[in-house]
């Protein structure tokens, strides 16, 4: 099992957190949803994995490349 940090690909605001520590996700399942450019932009699991930690809260501003979660899988 390898730990991986998941980063936001875009600057924006955290609109919704869709998973919590311990959540089991399939590839492409959303972890958090950002609001940017007036779009709902999911940050998704790149592989089937378990969420280790969510690093942001709803309403936070995140920058491009900023870590939003740690997964294991």
């Amino acid at each position: 099992m390898k730990r991986t940090t998941i980063a936001s690909e875009i600057t924006g605001k955290v609109w919704k957190i869709e998973a919590a520590a311990g959540s089991k996700l399939a590839e492409d399942d959303p972890i958090v949803i950002l609001e940017s450019m007036k779009m709902e932009i999911p940050v998704s699991a790149p592989i089937d994995c378990t969420v280790v930690e969510i690093l942001v809260a709803e309403g936070d501003t995140v920058a491009e490349g900023q870590a939003v979660a740690v997964i294991e899988g």
Binding site: E9, I10, S36, M37, K38, M39, E40, I41
Partner: peptide, 8 residues
Amino acid sequence: NPMFKGGA
């Protein structure tokens, strides 16, 4: 592609 960066 709206799937990535909202298509921006």
